[in-house]
Nucleic acid binder design. Structure first.
Lengths: 344, 344
DNA sequence: CTGAAAGCGCTTACAG
DNA sequence: CTGAAAGCGCTTACAG
C-alpha cells in the first residue's frame, strides 16, 4: 500500500499538487471550496507530508539535538537531574513542533551529523570551557544554547541559575543557625563557572556576617554520590571544627550524609548539611535535605525558547542569558550549631 | 558559504556525481586512484552527504524514536530509572549509526510523525496493555520494541526482566530471615504484567516455604515515592502483624522507609524492606536498601539490537522476547524477623 | 484562484 | 571503470 504522497491527494481531489501544497501550508490563495475538498481527501487518504522531502527543500529539519558530553564517566548516568532537564527540553520542543534527538558525545566525536541532518539547533548540556567538544560546536555555526555548563564567553546563549544567590542563601541559612565553620564541597571552582558563582555567594554571606573566610574549608573534588561519601573523613577531622557543610549537589549531599552516618555523626545534631538542586527524592531522605531549589523542567522549557528565538531569527541580543531564580527549601538536615545549642 | 554538495565534490575531483556516490557508499567498481582522489576532495571540502536527500530516496531515516507515554502524571519524571534506560538506548543506537528521537506522548497523540519522518523503528517505554496509544502504535506497522511495559500479546518484541525470579528471590531472602507476614507494595497486578510476574514469584517462594498466602498483605496502589510513604500507615497496622515489606520499586521503598521512620518504626529491626531496581542511590540510603538488581543500561542496548534486527530484516522469530536475569543485592534494610531475634 | 515546472541532494539502474 | 539521467516528495516562484 506504500506511502501516500501529495500526488495521490492531488489526483483524487482533481487539483494540482501546487494547490494541495498551498492548502497544507495555507499559503497562496485558494477558494474555500477547494480547501474543503482537499482537506477531506487528505483526511480520507491519511496523508501526511514527508519530512525528508521538506527538509531537502527547506534546509531545515525541525529537529534539534540535546548534546550530552560524556566527559567524566558516570557523571551523567548518576544524576537524575539530567532526566528532568531532558524532559523539560522535550516538552518545550514538542510545544513548538520540533523533535529532539538525544545524543551522547565523547571527546573524539565529530559533529558532521549536524549538517548531515540539517539540525536546526543544539542544546548542549553539562560541558566545560576549553574542551575540544566545545570548540567543535562553536565552529559549527549553528544556533546553540548551553545548559548546566561552564562558559564565561559572554556572547553565548545560556540558561543559568542564580548560582550566586543559591550559594548566598544556603550559607546565610547556616550562619543564621549559629554555624561559623562552614565547609564547602564545591566541585571544581572554575572562573565564572557555576560552582565559582556559588562560592562567591558563600563568601558574600560570610563577609556580611563578619565571619572569616578559610580556604581550608573548601574542597574542590568533584561531587558525586561517592565523592560526598568519601568527604565524610575530611569533614569530621577534629582539627577542622566543622559544624556545617554546604554541598553543591544533592547527590553529593546524600553521599556525605551516608558517610557521616557510618562514622556515627548525627545530622543535623552534630553537623548540618545543605544540598543543591532539590531532586525529587530529597524530601524522602533521612533526614530530609535542606537544599537550594531550582525548577529544572522550566529550565528545559526556557532553553528551547532561547534556541527557537535564534532559529526563527528573532534574536533579541539583550537576552542571551536567562538567569532563573533559586529558593531555599529548609528541611531537617540543618539545625542549630552545637555550641549554640548548649549555650543557654 | 552554503552547504557543499556532492556536485561540488564531483566538479573539483573531475568525476561524475555517480562516481562520488559510489566512493562514499563503496558500491560499484571504482579504480583505486579515483577513490583516493575523491576521498581527498571530500576531505578538503569537508563534505558530508545530506541525510534528507538520502532519506527521501531510501525511505529510511536511520532514526528511531523512544516513545515515553505520559500516562500517570509524574510517573516518569520521578524515576531516574528512565534516564538510565534512555542512555542505554542512545548508546546502543549510536553504535549502529542510528540517532534517537526522544518523544513524550499523551493519550491524544497521533503518530503521524512516524511516517512523516520515515522513522525506522520505535522503542516504547512504560506503557500498558489496552491503552489507546498502544492501539495506535500497533496500527502503524513499524518495527517496535516494548520496554518496561505490560504486554501479554506474545508476538510483540520485548525486553523483559526475569520478574518472576526477582519476586521469588526477594521473598525467599525475607523468609530465610524468619519473616512470615510479608507485605507486598506491588502496584497494579495486571495479568501477565511485570508486577503480576513478580507476584507469582512471591507466591512461589511462600508456597515453597509452606507459608500461607494472604491477599490482605498485597497492596496494588501504584508505587511512587509518595505512594510508598503513605503506605507506612497500613504497614504498621498492628492487626496485620507485618514484619517485612517487598516494594516493587526502589523509589517506593524509599518513601516507605521515610514514612516508617516518622512513625518511629526502625528498619530493619522492626520491619525489613526489599526494593526493586537497584537505583544508583540505594547504596547511599539509610539504611542501605536490599533490592533486586537489574542492568538498565544493558536493557537499553538490547532493546536497540532487537529493534535493529527487525529493521535490517533479520527477524529471528525465536527471540521476540529477551529476558534479562536479575540478582538480589543484600544490604542493610533487611534483617531477622523480630520474633526470631528474640527467640534464643 | 489554479497549475506546469524547476529544483532541493542524493542513489541507482542503465548504457557505454 | 565511468557517466547521463530519472526519480524520491515536496515547495515556490512564475505565468495565466
Amino acid at each position: 500500500m506504500g506511502k501516500v504522497t501529495i500526488k495521490d491527494v492531488a489526483k483524487k481531489a482533481n487539483v494540482s499538487v501546487t494547490t494541495v501544497s498551498n492548502v497544507i501550508n495555507n499559503s497562496g490563495r485558494t477558494s474555500p471550496d477547494t480547501i474543503r475538498k482537499v482537506k477531506q481527501v487528505i483526511e480520507e487518504l491519511q496523508f501526511s507530508p514527508s519530512a525528508s522531502a521538506r527538509n531537502l527543500r527547506d534546509k531545515s529539519s525541525h529537529l534539534i539535538a540535546v548534546v550530552v558530553p560524556f566527559l567524566e564517566k558516570g557523571r551523567l548516568q548518576d544524576n537524575p537531574f539530567y532526566w528532568q532537564l531532558v524532559l523539560g527540553i522535550e516538552e518545550g520542543a514538542r510545544n513548538h513542533q520540533f523533535h529532539v534527538i538525544l545524543l551522547g558525545v565523547d571527546e573524539e566525536e565529530n559533529f558532521s551529523f549536524v549538517s548531515e541532518r540539517h539540525l536546526d539547533g543544539l542544546i548542549v548540556v553539562g560541558t566545560f570551557e576549553g574542551t575540544p567538544i566545545l570548540k567543535q560546536i562553536q565552529a559549527l555555526d549553528v544556533p546553540c544554547v548551553f545548559m548546566d555548563s561552564y562558559m564565561s564567553e559572554f556572547n553565548l546563549y545560556q540558561v543559568l541559575l542564580d548560582d550566586e544567590m543559591g550559594g548566598y542563601l544556603g550559607t546565610k541559612h547556616l550562619i543564621g543557625l549559629g554555624h561559623q565553620r562552614i565547609a564547602l564541597l564545591s566541585g571544581k571552582l572554575q572562573q565564572n563557572g557555576v560552582n565559582y558563582k556559588r562560592w562567591l555567594g558563600y563568601r558574600r554571606a560570610l563577609e556580611e556576617a563578619g565571619l572569616p573566610y578559610d580556604p581550608e574549608l573548601v574542597r574542590e573534588e568533584p561531587v558525586s554520590t561517592a565523592g560526598g561519601y568519601q568527604a565524610s573523613q575530611y569533614i569530621t577531622d577534629p582539627r577542622m571544627n566543622i559544624t556545617a557543610v554546604f554541598v553543591f549537589s544533592d547527590v553529593g549531599a546524600m553521599g556525605l550524609i551516608k558517610g557521616l552516618h557510618e562514622l556515627g555523626v548525627h545530622v543535623p545534631r552534630d553537623i548540618s548539611i545543605v544540598g543543591f538542586d532539590d531532586l525529587f527524592y530529597t524530601d524522602y531522605m533521612i533526614p530530609s535535605l535542606t537544599t537550594v531549589n531550582q525548577d529544572v523542567i522550566e529550565r528545559g522549557n526556557i532553553a528551547v525558547r532561547l534556541l527557537l528565538d535564534q532559529i526563527v531569527g528573532e534574536s533579541r541580543d539583550d537576552a542571551r542569558k536567562v538567569v532563573l531564580p533559586v529558593s531555599l527549601k529548609v528541611r531537617k538536615s540543618t539545625g542549630p550549631a552545637p555550641n549554640v545549642q548548649s549555650a543557654p
